[in-house]
Design a protein around this nucleic acid. Structure first.
Length: 1123
RNA sequence: GCUCUUUUAGCUUAAUUGGUUAAAGCGUUGGUCUUAUGAGCCAAAGAUUGGGAGUUCAAGUCUCCCAGAGAGCACCA
């Protein structure tokens, strides 16, 4: 006996039961154990950060990340799923700062680096429980107990090893560059991080005059959106090929120099008359000296000169120089250059420096400190945050008459990705870089081999990103991160990189270990992993191998946390210091998946590091791994949008919490919604309503079939566990075939053969799609099968299940067929909806006890049984279903209810291929349409017109431009006659534009068109015509069915069990109803399990009904249950 | 500015890869079937396939231009 199912399933409750069974039975562990010697399917988990709450987007990634490993495991692969946590970096530090109510780097230092680090380490696990709960609740199977953690010593040491490798190969270098600088945080950010923080803001837009030194009434006019950079101005740049104009300002009478082509535009913008006085080329302006807007540096350095390499002297700065990047797209055609705050500006300075003899050139001018505030040199602005000083600078310039226009300018500007109120500034800084640009070609080659889904990522977004690769700004002047493992000699400045903690301990003259030991002694709770972190690691110094008196001291920086996650393919194993074997077995990954925002995050960091270490030009001993690595297939998920179609955001609260969804609808519902609603890379609109709607369509429909089966199997005592002895395997077709009463499928009825064929066709389709990472297509195929199973197979088999004779072979066939469908389906849907599938398995297969696997997730994915597939039957049945549908449609048009039997329908087929089959299998159709007779007619001219159209695909290439005429000729011709001609000769010749065109059968397509005046419905391939004539006999039969329906409804109202026997009586004046009862009473009684059915009354509640346009008093009493 | 994606019924999506009545689901309305069903079935209403041009016998599909949306890159002097 199958465990009876609840009437109204609560999926969340059911999932809870399944979860606890998984836990108690160690099912996940067993699923791996089962495959311990199998070929591997390698999955990498992109580590999330656990110091923020998980949200619906994480549910999507985790669902996809679970689906394919489950599928591959069932397909026979060993797929370990090592979880991981990203624990370093700004996100963590920022969280801790918020907690402490501090913000700037100085404040952290005041608070103390040591306690700060401790708090960071604790904070990392803040939402751990929520993450683990979500992971489990969603059914994401992963090895959480052995998760890799980026701050753990072994992980850090792996990262060190890789950095040492790069350092030793000259790929890790310290450089002076203009970097994007987070002033409040006191650190540079990488291109990737900067890119995440762009936001549209309105900045000031100022036009400023730089008066010519020797011509004070004339000015260079420049434009900037960063007035705060003006005090650090060093040059004005022009393009030598542009034409410039001297224009008279109608308002001030002064002369401005601007690009000629911009005069009109500027005049309009300034709302002033600008009269061109003369023009000259850019090259003529070169060398002109001007007064910078502020004299903080000018007053001392204004006349400084230096010796040029080519001979002669030149003034250092505040003169016009040439630069190619100057355009007239915006501004004035003259550009203010503050080399401290722009990469292009800086390049100009370097180029200028190179014109001078060594040490003779201009030096960088910078009026701003690393804290983003003006330094002492900037007079009244000293100590002020630059962005905040913009206004006053503009005001001062206006007062001094240097400002032509102050406006607003709307543009995107980067902010710190983790402190989004802090705008970044460009700033000159010494920083560590990885020479990724040297590997650009290698990375591109590697990328070409990756199977990206969707495909356009490869040459689109990701390829473009690689194309514009810049060296990776690796270092962070921060605290909580992997320390940069470079030690510098205090005497010579020479450096070396360290690859492990032990390597340090082995250094001669090591000192500083006591700092850690002391801290640990004072606080034994301290995690040992902290010893490789700041500040403890900074304390370690050793004797310099480069100078006798020298000490080796670590540089102060930590590294970009994106490097941590990118090192995950080897660092998760502590490679090469430990687990080298695991690394080799699990490299590269077969499958990874994250959202689109990881293109320059994890997708890039992994690819870059792997290419540099293991690629064609990687380190010698490791090099040469075949591309692609470290991942072969990558599903790039679309961004998830909130209920309103906008970006999901905590502050807008435009989404439901995952837990709310789990509690209301369950994890399967959410998963199925993700898998079956759209290709995973399209942006997903996360709406509660849509999740809700995905339930009835699939889960509930499946549940109903499942429930139907258990109800009837229990009633009839269908017990497969008794019919099948010995080991039951995994209840595959072969296993079931050994059961008694299980008939060879070939011997069963059409419907059984059909549904099993559909089942195996579906599985074949699903496997092929899943092997190509197409979960959407696979889910659609499964959905379609469940629909067919529920709405055609079960519906049309109902009579067999309801038949009284329990050992009837056809009835048993129905049970075996449906049972086989359900257990196979449970396996097929297991990776998608792991809970419901396992619940089905436990119920359906559970009756076998130990003789079958305890969980569906320990089974193999169902194999396609080719001999059960019958493509032809599939097409035939589809035709049959279409005819049934047309029949119903025709009935509706005539307002002939399905319960009213009809004598005959005639079916006209456009294509008669299946006519013989249809004729011999029309019982099903007769019943479905409730007619006595079905006739397939060939000569149907009276009912229909034949519309003949050319087969465009075939004829198009042949007749080309004549096609419209061919179409017209065929349309005008008598279709029936043409067809007759085809039948007779096989070809037909028509005259088109004076030329004969010979057409054969395949050159045309026939459409049927029902003629007016018939109760007919037409489809693509057939027309169904009803015989609407009703006899008394037919009408009485219809009433009998009405009576059955009326009594069944009453049974339902009375909450009868399926097997309850009843007594029925009814009172009516209707003669025809009385006749009906006399004639069909037996059938009515049998159908409704009535022991007696009489005209009259009963000792039971009386209800009023209306049948056959007559009033009826109905009495129904329950007798007893059938034993 | 450049690149990628995208635009089809009120909403969500389809259209055999260029083949001729643009198809479903949800929702709405009406009808119907059913002792598994919250399901199903039948139908009505709902479309100038974002706009425009071009190529072609034939364009939702290919090309170009324009517009909207989303994202990325760069710049923002």
């Amino acid at each position: 006996m199958f465990e009876p199912l609840p009437n109204n399933p609560s999926f969340p409750a059911l999932e809870g039961k399944v979860l606890s069974r998984w836990k108690e039975g160690d099912v996940y562990e067993k699923s791996l154990q089962n495959r311990k010697d199998a070929e591997r399917f390698v999955f990498y988990e992109g580590p999330p950060t656990a110091n923020g709450m998980p949200h619906p987007g994480h549910c999507l990634t985790r669902s996809i990340k679970d689906l394919f490993p489950r599928y591959k495991t069932m397909q026979g692969f060993l797929c370990e799923r090592k979880a991981g946590w990203d624990t370093h970096g700004l996100p963590v530090e920022v969280e801790v700062c918020k907690e402490l109510g501090i913000h700037s780097k100085e404040e952290i230092e005041e608070y103390g680096v040591e306690p700060f680090i401790h708090r960071c380490q604790e904070s990392v696990w803040r939402y751990m429980q929520e993450w683990e709960a979500l992971t489990e609740r969603l059914g994401f199977w992963a090895n959480l107990d052995e998760a890799y953690v980026t701050y753990h010593q072994s992980y850090v040491e792996s990262v060190w090893w890789s950095l040492k490798n790069l350092f030793d190969r000259g790929l890790l270098y310290r450089g002076h560059k203009i970097v994007w600088w987070w002033a409040q945080g006191g650190t540079a950010l990488s291109a990737g991080e900067v890119g995440q923080g762009y936001r549209e803001v309105a900045d000031p837009s100022v036009f400023v005059e730089f008066p010519l030194r020797d011509q004070q009434e004339e000015s260079l006019l420049i434009w900037t959106t960063t007035p705060w950079t003006l005090p650090s101005n060093q040059f004005a740049a022009v393009h030598v090929d542009l034409t410039y104009a001297r224009v008279r300002d109608g308002e001030t009478g002064r002369v401005l120099i601007v690009a000629e082509s911009l005069v009109e535009k500027l005049a309009a913008q300034f709302k002033r008359e600008l009269t061109v006085e003369s023009t000259c080329s850019g090259s003529e302006l070169l060398g002109l000296r001007y007064d910078p807007p502020f004299d903080y540096f000018y007053k001392n350095l204004g006349d400084n000169t230096g010796e040029l390499i080519k001979g002669g002297k030149q003034v250092h700065q505040w003169r016009v120089v040439a630069a190619d990047f100057v355009t007239t797209d915006s501004g004035t055609g003259l550009v203010h250059m503050a080399p401290a705050f722009g990469e292009a500006d800086y390049d100009v300075l370097v180029a200028e420096q190179e014109r001078f003899q060594e040490g003779e050139g201009p030096q960088l001018i910078c009026a701003v400190g690393p804290d983003g505030k003006f330094t002492e040199v900037a007079g009244p602005y000293a100590g002020r945050w630059v962005k905040e000083a913009d206004k006053d600078i503009s005001r001062e310039l206006r007062e001094r008459g240097r400002l032509v226009l102050l406006d607003q300018y709307l543009h995107d500007y980067p902010f710190c990705w983790r402190a989004d109120d802090d705008p970044l500034i460009q700033y000159p800084r010494e920083s560590w870089f990885i020479r990724t640009t040297e590997f650009r070609e290698d990375m591109l080659a590697n990328n070409q081999q990756i199977n990206w889904l969707p495909g356009h990522i490869k040459d689109g977004r990701f390829g473009n990103f690689l194309d514009s690769n810049v060296d990776w700004a690796l270092s962070r002047e921060r605290f909580w991160g992997t320390p940069l493992p470079v030690w510098v000699c205090s005497e010579t400045g020479r450096m070396e990189a360290i690859g492990s903690y032990q390597e340090l301990l082995d250094k001669a003259g090591l000192d500083g270990v006591q700092v850690w030991e002391k801290a640990k002694a004072e606080n034994p709770e301290l995690s040992d992993h902290l010893k490789v972190h700041k500040p403890y690691i900074d304390a370690l110094t050793y004797a310099s191998p480069f100078a006798e008196a020298g000490r080796m001291e670590r540089v102060s920086e930590v590294i970009d946390c994106w490097y941590d996650s990118g090192a995950m393919p080897f660092a998760q194993w502590g490679y090469p210091h430990s687990h080298a074997e695991q690394f080799k077995q699990q490299f590269p990954a077969d499958f990874i998946s994250e959202a689109l925002d990881q293109t320059r995050g994890w997708f890039y960091s992994q690819l870059a590091i792997s290419t540099m270490l293991f690629g064609e030009h990687g380190a010698e001993q490791e090099a040469g791994a075949e591309y692609p690595h470290p991942y072969r297939n990558c599903i790039v998920l679309g961004l998830m949008l909130g209920e309103d179609g906008r970006k999901m955001s905590k502050s807008k609260r435009n989404y439901r919490e995952p837990n709310e969804i789990f509690d209301k609808y369950g994890a399967d519902a959410l998963r199925w919604y993700f898998f079956a609603n759209q290709a995973p890379w399209t942006p997903i609109r996360y709406k509660e309503q849509s999740i809700k709607e995905s339930i009835p369509e699939f889960l509930l429909r499946l549940w109903n079939v499942f429930s139907f089966f258990t109800i009837y199997a229990n009633i009839d005592g269908f017990a497969p566990e008794e019919l099948l002895s010995g080991d039951a395997g995994e209840l595959s077709a072969d296993d079931l075939a050994t059961a008694s009463s299980y008939r060879e499928v070939a011997e069963r009825g059409e419907l059984d053969r059909w549904v099993l064929s559909e089942l195996h066709r579906t599985i074949e389709d699903v496997v092929s799609r899943m092997d190509h990472y197409d979960n959407y297509g696979a889910a659609l195929a499964l959905n379609e099968f469940v629909d067919a199973l529920s709405n055609w197979y079960v519906r049309r088999s109902r009579d067999r299940f309801w038949a009284a004779e329990k050992q009837n072979a056809e009835k048993l066939d129905a049970y075996w067929t449906l049972y086989e469908c359900l257990v196979t389906l449970a396996k097929a849907i297991a990776p998608f909806v792991p809970f419901l599938s396992d619940y089905m398995w436990q119920t359906l297969a559970g009756v076998f006890g130990e003789r079958v696997p305890e969980s569906v997730h320990l089974c193999n994915y169902p194999a396609v049984v080719n001999k059960l597939k019958d493509e032809e039957l599939s097409v035939r049945m589809a035709t049959l279903r279409e005819i049934a549908s047309l029949g119903r449609s025709a009935r509706m048009n005539e307002k002939l209810k399905v319960r009213q039997p009809l004598q005959k329908v005639e079916v006209v087929l456009g294509d008669e291929t299946y006519k013989p089959w249809l004729e011999s299998h029309d019982a099903l159709l007769r019943e479905e349409l409730n007619v006595k007779q079905i006739e397939y007619v060939t000569e149907a001219d009276q009912y229909i017109d034949y519309l003949i159209q050319p087969n465009f695909k075939r004829l198009g290439p042949r007749v080309g431009k004549l096609i419209p005429q061919v179409k017209a000729v065929l349309a005008e011709a008598n279709g029936a006659e043409l067809l007759a001609q085809f039948d007779a000769d096989g070809v037909v010749t028509i005259e088109v534009g004076g030329e004969p065109v010979i057409l054969d059968n395949e050159d045309i397509q026939v459409r049927l068109q029902a003629k007016d005046g018939w109760a007919a419905a037409q489809g693509k391939n057939s027309v169904v015509v009803l015989n609407t004539e009703l006899t008394e006999e037919l009408i009485r039969e219809g009433y009998a069915r009405d009576l059955i329906r009326m009594i069944q409804d009453r049974r339902k109202e009375l909450d009868c069990d399926f097997t309850d026997r009843i007594s029925v009586a009814l009172e009516t004046d209707s003669l025809v109803l009385k006749e009906t009862l006399a004639q069909h009473g037996d059938v009515v009684a049998a159908e409704t399990l009535a022991d007696n059915l009489v005209i009259g009354s009963l000792n039971a509640e009386c209800v009023a009904r209306n049948i056959a346009e007559a009033d009826v008093q109905l009495y129904v009493a329950v007798n007893s249950s059938l034993e």
